[in-house]
Design a binder for these strands. Structure first.
Length: 382
DNA sequence: CTGTCATTAGTCAGACAG
DNA sequence: ATTACTGTCTGACTAATG
């Protein structure tokens, strides 16, 4: 008989901000926000102390990527526009994001976890699922071991949830933050999960939450008590059934140790909104650069793309996408640029544009790609 | 021959998450 | 008023195929 499933979710505490605090320990306890467009590096003053930019000094477009807990106490959360954040916390310190450092600490904490428990599913830069089913120690011991290993390797704290499945563990890891540990069993669902708001379920975002609220469904318990048919009629077959099961704490998704990427993309928001009529040159330069970066990413990772697409965000925030599927995979800049150019022709260019993006989907491994050179569709039989 | 149904691929928008 | 970037998935719709 196989061991009962036991799965951990491990989430680094305020990850980006905490990495910054390793570099700038004098900021511990301060309201610090990470984000913006990277032109506010700390300076060294004549007396040798570091001088940091304040939120009130920030001018341009940008959002808070993360904030320390003191900044959160002032109402500044990730995703919030920096202009709005500056109103709430003008004296908060603003640091540019340093993704190289975050990737470095990400690898370190994942390696530390792997030394304790090797069956890991990557969920982005700052969190992972771990399958502990084959381990003998009790969950409390394992959780503390994981946290100690992460702290020894990085000097950073994390929070851990352990339960029979990913859904419950994800909720659990958030129940006791920072540096917390929560262990849940199936029997705990009515007491520990049902009182929580529906938005605590990973996958129920602001829109679904609002629709549920309109039907007087606010807690996970109320969701669990809603007939599956009603949820299906509200959200469709797949999502409705999933939601109903999730509310009972049921989730049989496995921990996926490795997976292939589905798409690779690059996009950028301009300093000011651009118009195809007045800013042709700039738009064209950026567009080509994005195509080259996507091509470079494809080649470095060893993929070719069969579906190339573009994305535009107009000044009013409306988003349009177009894509094109090709007979064979491509990975070089010139042909990505050509395909993306065809997409661009199908989009109205009468309004000002705020963002431009290029995407490569339908990925095939470069080693197996047909290396389509325009004749790979085969010769006609006559 | 025409209509219907099932299935699949392609396209696009939108929700969600880290 | 303000709202990054990268990536995944689902639903709705259309077209093609059988």
């Amino acid at each position: 008989m196989p061991a009962a499933r036991r799965i951990a979710h491990l989430d680094m505490d305020a990850f980006f901000a905490s990495v910054e605090l390793l570099a700038y320990p004098e900021l511990r306890g301060e309201a610090v926000v990470v984000g913006g467009r990277s032109i506010h590096q700390p300076r060294i003053s004549p007396d040798g102390t570091r001088v940091f930019a304040r939120l009130r000094d920030y001018g341009g477009r940008g959002v808070a990527t993360t904030s320390t807990y003191p900044a959160r106490a002032l109402g500044v959360f990730s995703g919030m526009g920096l202009m709005k954040s500056a109103q709430l916390a003008p004296d908060a310190i603003l640091l540019p994001a340093n993704f190289d450092a975050y990737r470095h600490y990400s690898s370190r904490f994942k390696a530390a976890v792997a030394a304790v428990a090797p069956c890991i599913e990557d969920r982005g830069i700052d969190e992972i699922y771990i399958d502990l089913s084959d381990h003998q120690e009790d969950s409390e011991t394992l959780a503390r071991k994981l946290q100690q290993a992460v702290f020894d390797a990085t000097g950073l704290t994390c929070s851990v949830g352990i339960s029979p499945n990913k859904l419950l563990s994800k909720i659990a890891s958030d129940l006791n933050k920072p540096n917390g540990c929560t262990i849940l069993h199936s029997e705990d669902v009515p007491t520990r999960i049902w009182p929580l708001p529906v938005g605590k379920i990973n996958g129920i975002g602001p829109k679904a939450q609002e629709r549920l609220h309109r039907h007087d469904i606010r807690t996970i318990g109320e969701l669990a008590a809603t007939p599956a048919e009603q949820l299906v009629s509200l959200f469709g077959q797949t999502t409705g059934r999933w939601m109903h099961r999730a509310a009972q704490g049921i989730d049989d998704r496995p921990v996926v140790v490795e997976s292939e990427p589905r798409s690779i993309s690059r996009e950028t928001t301009f300093e000011r909104d651009l118009h195809a009529r007045d800013d042709r040159g700039e738009l064209s330069t950026v567009f080509t650069a994005l195509c080259l970066r996507v091509a470079d990413d494809l080649q470095r990772k060893g993929y070719a793309s069969r579906t190339v697409g573009i994305k535009l965000r107009y000044a009013d925030f409306q988003v349009v996408t177009r894509d094109i599927t090709l007979p064979g995979g491509i990975a070089d800049g010139a042909r990505i640029r050509q395909a993306a150019g065809l997409c661009l022709k199908r989009v109205p260019l009468t309004r000002k544009i705020r963002l431009l993006g290029v995407r490569a989907g339908g990925l095939v491994r470069l080693s197996e790609a047909a290396q389509d050179s325009g004749e790979a569709q085969g010769h006609l039989p006559f």
